[in-house]
Simulated scan of single mutants.
Amino acid sequence: MKKIKSLIAILPLLILLFSACGKVDTYTPPNSGIFGKVVDAQTGLPLESRSPNGGSIRLLQQDPKYPSPGPIDIILQAKTNYNAELLFAGTYKVVPRDGPFQYFGDTVKAVLPPNGKTQVDFKVDPYYRIAASVVDSTFTYTITAPTSNTSKMQEIIFLVGKSPILDESVSSNTTGMYINLWKKSVSGVADNTILGISGTYNIGWVTTHLPKGEYYFRVGARTSVARYNYSPVIKATVH
Rank of each mutant, 00 (worst) to 15 (best):
E48K: 15
G55D: 05
R97Q: 15
L47C: 04
I57K: 03
L47E: 09
D40Y: 00
T43H: 01
G99D: 06
L86T: 14
F88H: 15
K123M: 10
G116W: 06
T43W: 04
S68Y: 14
V124S: 12
E48P: 05
Y103N: 11
A110R: 00
D98T: 06
D40Q: 06
E85G: 08
S56R: 13
V124F: 02
G36Y: 06
A84E: 12
Q119K: 12
P71Q: 09
P113V: 04
L45R: 10
Q42C: 10
D73A: 11
P71A: 03
K117N: 11
P52R: 00
Y103F: 15
A84F: 07
Q62S: 08
P64G: 10
N115E: 15
P114W: 15
F122I: 03
L76N: 01
L45V: 09
G55A: 08
A78M: 10
S51R: 07
L86F: 15
V38G: 00
K79H: 15
A41S: 10
R50M: 14
Y92F: 03
N115S: 12
N81F: 13
G55M: 13
F35V: 08
I72F: 13
P67H: 01
D40S: 02
D121T: 09
P69D: 00
Q42D: 10
L60H: 04
A78S: 15
I72Y: 08
V95K: 15
N115H: 05
P113T: 03
G90Q: 04
F122E: 02
N53V: 07
S51G: 00
N83P: 11
D63V: 12
V108S: 13
I57N: 08
T80F: 11
V124R: 01
G55L: 08
E48C: 05
A78E: 12
Q77E: 14
V124W: 02
V94E: 03
T80I: 10
Y103V: 12
K79M: 14
K37M: 13
L47I: 06
L86C: 11
P100V: 10
P52V: 02
V38I: 10
K37T: 15
L76I: 03
D98S: 09
D121Q: 03
D73E: 14
K123G: 06
Q61G: 07
A84Y: 05
L47Q: 01
E85W: 08
D63S: 04
P67Q: 00
N53D: 11
G70E: 14
E48H: 05
P52Y: 02
Q119R: 15
L76A: 02
V39Q: 04
Q42H: 06
K93P: 00
I34A: 01
Y103C: 02
F104L: 09
I34Y: 01
A89N: 12
E85T: 13
E48M: 12
L45S: 11
V124E: 03
Q102M: 15
F88R: 12
P69I: 00
I34V: 09
A84M: 06
Q77W: 06
G99T: 08
Y66C: 10
A41G: 07
N83W: 12
T118W: 05
Q102P: 04
G116F: 13
A78N: 08
T80V: 08
P64C: 11
R97A: 14
L86W: 13
S51T: 06
G55Y: 10
A110F: 04
I74A: 03
T91N: 05
